[in-house]
Design a protein around this nucleic acid. Sequence first.
RNA 1: GGUCGGUUAACCGAGUGGCUAGGUAGCGGUCUGCAAAACCGUUUACGGCGGUUCGAAUCCGCCACCGACCUCCA
Length: 489
Amino acid sequence: MQNNLIIYNSLTKKKELFKPLNEPFVGLYVCGPTVYSDAHLGHARPAVIFDLLYRYLTHLGYKVRYVRNITDVGHLENDADEGEDKIEKKARLEHIEPMEVVQKYLNTYYRNMEQLNTLHPSIEPRASGHIIEQQEFIKTLLEKGYAYEVNGSVYFDVAGYNEKYRYGKLSGRVLEELQNNTRVLEGQDEKRNPFDFALWKKASPEHLMNWPSKWSTGYPGWHLECSAMSIKYLGEEFDIHGGGMDLLFPHHECEIAQSTAALGKESVRYWIHNNMITINGQKMARSLGNFITLDQLFSGNHLVLEQPYSPMTIRFFILQAHYRSTVDFSKEALQAAEKGLQKLLKAIENLNKIKPCASSTVDIDILKKRCYEALDDDLNSPITLSHLFDGVRIVNSLIDGTAKIDESGLKALHELFDTFVFDILGLKDESAGAGDEKLTDDLMKIIIDLRQDAKDKKEWAASDKIRNELKNAGIVLKDMKDGVEWEKE
RNA sequence: GGUCGGUUAACCGAGUGGCUAGGUAGCGGUCUGCAAAACCGUUUACGGCGGUUCGAAUCCGCCACCGACCUCCA
C-alpha cells in the first residue's frame, strides 16, 4: 500500500511521511473527555479532526483501530491531597451517584458527537473499567524501580526515569528547569520531587470513587489510564496518539515516561495535537468559564448567540481552519461558515440538474488531485475546501450554461463531492429527512402553480404577495430560467 | 520568570522567495416584470524597524503586541 500522507509529528516537530507499523493496519489512540459536564465547542475540535483522520486513513484503504478513552474515574481538582475529585464534586452538588454523573454527561457527549457526524471509534474504553490493568501497570513500574509507595499512594519517580531516558522530550522541557519552575503546591510532602506524579492515590474517607488495591483503597492517577488502555488495545507500539495541545504537558509527557519505563521502549510513533478554540483571543475551557456548550450552539440558547448553529455548521467551521492553528470563535465567523456550507451543499444538490455534453470545458481530475494533495499535506482541510469551492463554481457555471461537461466528467464531479465532502470531510445534508416531505412538495407545487397563473396574467401584485408571504413563513422562491425553485431559509 | 507558538485585506482563514487560496460581507456589471440565486469584475493584505537577495508577506536579526503550556483541561 502506498500513500503520500504527511503529518506533523509533535515529537519530532517536523512533518513526516506516515508509515504504519504493520500495514494495512493502523492504531490510533485519542484522548477523550473527562465526563463531568456538558461537552462544549472545544471538545468538538479533536473529535472532528481525528474523525477526519480516521475517515481519511480508512478511505486510503487502511484498517484503522481507533480508540478513544472516556475518563470517568475522576481526578483531583488540583495536586493537593485535600483536592476534591471533580466528578465527585459534581455528584455532591446534584445529589446523585458519581457514576450517574458520568452516565449523564457521557450520554450527552455521545449524542453531540453523533450530531457532529463523527463516527464512533472502534473502542471507547472507560478508565473505570480498566482499574486492574492500571494496577498491573503500577506493579510493573514498582518492580522496575520507577515508582515508589508512600502511605498507600504510589508516585512515578521522574528523576530516576530521567537518568536513563529523557523526561521532557515531547514538550521540550528540561528537568532542571522544571525543578525551578514547578509550582509549590500543598500536600506534596509525600513526593520525592514536586514534578513526580501520582500513579495511585489513597482515597480519603469522604472520597466516594475508589477501588481496592494492594497499596490502599484509592484511585488511579490521571495519566495512567491512557498508557494502560492504549497498550491493551493497540499493542506496546502503535502508530498515532492524538489529543488537544493542552494535554502535551504534563499529560502526554507523563504518559511517555510511564510507558517507556514500563516497556523499555517508546510506545507511540506519531503524536498529533490539535490547537485550541479561542473566544475573544483566549482559550475556551471549562475551567475558565468562557465556554459555550454544543447544545447551546445547536439551540442558540446562549447570551452571545443570536441564532442556533447546526451541527454541520460547527463541523464546517472547524474544518475551515487548519487543525494546528487556533481558531477564534465569533458569531460572524459562524454565520460565514453557515452560508458557505449552504452554498456547497446547494451546488451538490444541483448536480442532478446537469446534463452531459459531447465535450467538456472543465477539468475535474485536477480538482481531485488537488484535494488529495491538500489532505496529504498534514490534513489541510481548509485548502481541500477551497478546491471544493472551485468545484462549486464549476457546477454553477454548468447550470448557467457558461461551461460544458461530458459524461465522464460529470461522473467524476459527482464522485469528487461524494468522496471528499461526505465520505472524508464527513459533512452531510441536514435538510434531508425532515418528514412530511411529500405533502410539503405537493402543497408547494400548488402554490407555485397559482403564482405562475398570476404571473402569466402579469398580476405582479398577486405574485409578489405570494412570494412575500412565503418568505415570511421562511420559504424562499426563486424564479429560475427553467421553472421555480423553493427552499427553506 | 521559563518553554513554545502567533500577528495576513471589512471579518474568518490558507499559503508560497517571483505566479488569483477559499468562505462571508460590501461595491459594480450580466440575467430577471421585480426580487432571490447564479455568473463576471472589484475593494489601502501580509505588526514595526533593519538585513540577505535581481526580487520577501515568505529567509535572518531586533522590537512591539497577543496567546498556549509550566495546575485540571480537548
